[in-house]
Design a protein around this nucleic acid. Structure first.
Lengths: 259, 259
DNA sequence: CCCAATTTGTTCGTATGTATC
DNA sequence: AGATACATACGAACAAATTGG
């Protein structure tokens, strides 16, 4: 008989790993059922609290969602970049990443991303891009509206990311936009006289649309590169250091889902 | 008066958010104490299980580590890219990312990363790079050793990432290497006759070292770009589709910590 | 509309392992 | 070695949410 069970690895962690193995072994897809609380309790002969911790971990990792009621339980969540994005912000909270750092990456990523979606823009996305440009072209009446336009300008790049067939490249692009968005939102020392920044951005966006219509990937890449250099210049003139509170959720962040 | 307390958001999630707010408000750093189980129980007037779930969530997010015994409790973990990396793999498990996709990003990220560390390599890192090249130059006796050399070749790029002052750029570089590493580890259909791939890689690494010694960032960038194009060529000839089991932990993955 | 079944969410009490003093 | 403080784990119960009759 085993006098000491001697588990050095916590049981809940084992359950987490086993469920992950189950997911890949059974080729489960989003929406499929994974073992529920009672099932896991029976399978591992442990208490409710233990399996709840395991399910909580899977939940935080964005792999499952829990539903109450009959037919409820744990279900495989559909792929969501949010958990990865959140963890990456957690990580960066303890490092210092400034606007310069964001643009160092943006200058190489955005041109590649933009060029790669040439000829892949659906009419819907084209319309969304044109709507975005139109919305950003209006002269802002209030300072708040100007603020909103800045965020909308970033949405232009998110639409391009949505069209990008490379999921990792799209993720990186969206994440960079998110970083810049937080910076804009946080920026109290917002300088109104710099609305020429917005004009400059919209100008580049218009050039990009023209290049997309002609399907000229090389020109798209060149325009986007120039756009990034220009934006970096405006940005570095504006801000000192990027605010380091990536741990927090800001109002309106969840609004950037989809489109 | 409120007849129904009506918590629509789960209490454990509120605790998680509050603790995060506390971390940024108090400017806590890795190693600092965060409220322990009994403290949170008293503060929120809830049960153990609830605060345990909250702490579990913070643990999965890589923000805290738990210690037992007197003076134990929850402590702020030092910044670790692993949780973000894990979540990103979770996300990509449900998308399809192939070798081509990895190299699309690698071709723009690695040259930028490599160029940015020019003049920033400490003697220790220089020695590590030279050791790496020496180790990879030895003619592999067994197939297993050849396999190990491939992984070591990726380590060359990780050393460069360690020297990169941009934390996000470094993370992306390391993550791409991790993806390729999993591909190499998984690759059963490993083709031994392609050991010229290794020779090619080591050749580029030697050229990079020479350019670093001269502090020529432009040449570093050019060499790395050529290196990536060459590696992509070898890679795409080798593999069909990248294995999609990023959820799992592979043996030896934890060995990639540091250096 | 209510009632009943099902499943998660939460609480209390208790016991055990483990590290510190 | 013993006492303390903390996480870890178990079990039984109740509350809340959801579904279907």
């Amino acid at each position: 008989m085993p006098p000491r069970p001697l588990r050095r690895t916590k049981l809940s962690d084992i359950i987490v790993q086993d469920v992950k193995r189950l997911i890949v072994a059974e080729c489960l897809e989003p929406g499929d059922r994974v073992p529920s609380e009672p099932e896991l309790i029976a399978q591992y002969g442990c208490s409710k609290g233990t399996v709840r911790e395991a399910l909580k971990a899977l939940q935080v990792e964005g792999l499952v969602t829990m539903r109450t009621g009959p037919g409820g339980g744990a279900y495989l969540a559909d792929a969501d970049p949010e958990p990865a994005s959140r963890m990456l912000r957690n990580f960066l909270h303890f490092r210092h990443l400034d606007g310069e750092g964001v643009y160092q990456i943006r200058k190489v990523v955005e041109p590649e991303l933009a060029a790669s979606v040439t000829g892949r823009l659906t009419p819907e996305r084209f319309a969304a891009l044109e709507d975005n440009v139109a919305e950003c072209s209006r002269h802002p009446e209030t300072e708040e509206e100007q603020h909103r336009q800045r965020i909308l300008e970033l949405e232009f790049h998110n639409i391009l990311a949505d069209a990008c067939p490379n999921p990792l490249l799209a993720f990186i692009g969206r994440f960079l936009n998110e970083m810049l968005r937080d910076l804009v939102v946080l920026k109290k020392a917002y300088v109104p006289e710099r609305h020429q920044f917005g004009d400059s951005n919209v100008g580049y966006h218009r050039l990009l649309l023209a290049a997309y219509r002609e399907g000229d990937a090389a020109r798209v890449r060149a325009i986007m590169l120039a756009h990034m250099h220009d934006a970096e210049r405006h940005m570095s003139a504006l801000e000192g250091e990027m605010a380091n509170s990536f741990l927090l959720e800001f109002p309106g962040r969840e609004a950037s889902r989809g489109v």
